[in-house]
Amino acid sequence: MGFSPRQAPVFLAAIFAPSILLVGLFIVYPVVNSVGLAFTDASPLSSGRSFVGLENFVYLLEDGEFWEVLWNTVFIVGAATIIATACGYGLATLLISGIRAAAIFRAAIFQVWVVPWIVIAILWGWLFSQDYGLVNYLLMQVGLIETPVKWMFDQKASQWAIISGYAWRAIPFIMVICLAALQGIPSELVESAAIDGASFLQRQRYVILPLMQNIIMVAALLQAVRFFQEMTMIFVLTQGGPINATMVLSLYTYKTAFEDWDFGLASAIGTVWLILLMAFALLYVRVALRRNLA
């Protein structure tokens, strides 16, 4: 369906002009230009710029730090996405189970999604403070730990502190989407499964999840993409430390570019990031296609 573009070429040109201008000048050109910079030693600190071939990439791939950062990113983004998705889906299932005042609960939970990242960064610094933080206090009360955890110094602990902040912020988003999708499942389907004697878990496994899996995947993927870009919390709280435990690709690229002023190397990191992204997208599309065919 739809109108033929030939009917109104001028009108079409006019309505596409603003976005073509914006996207062309400020997305396409910068990406292409930055990929080009990856093969130079560009730096705003020096006026000259010379072609250095693959030197930046060779350095990057030989340097252990880059692989460490890559792994940290995958770990932090992956763990946060999985936790947020599981909790978001669980909450949506709970809220749709016929409890009273579900709308109020939903609205209350949604407040979490409203909290700005800069506030989460400050708030997490307070919650996870070593000596006076609420988290250490509660964990000690419950008896899970005996001495305060050094959240911002222990490598594993700092990763989990960051992951918890990411996951916390994303739960409402996943929940809202899952809720909308769950409400869209025809009730007869679920009812007939129940009549056949399917337990709660069986209904989830054989009826609901197969219907939900695409939406859950899309929501999780969208969230993961956002996590990849997000770095306010890490910038304010840890600056990538301790050592490199919370150094993620976005902060690493940013610091290389705007603290070391090594635009060449930073562009190389961004380019590798872009390549990995495309590889992942290709893989995803292929798997999704195969599943749809099957």
Binding site: V23, F228, G270, L274, A281
Partner: peptide, 20 residues
């Protein structure tokens, strides 16, 4: 859709040079 995932720092590098 894909441009959502483009590394923002990568964009920023060239945007910075442009904005100068």
């Amino acid at each position: 859709m894909a441009s959502l995932a483009f590394p923002i720092p990568l964009l920023m590098i060239s945007m910075y040079l442009m904005f100068v």
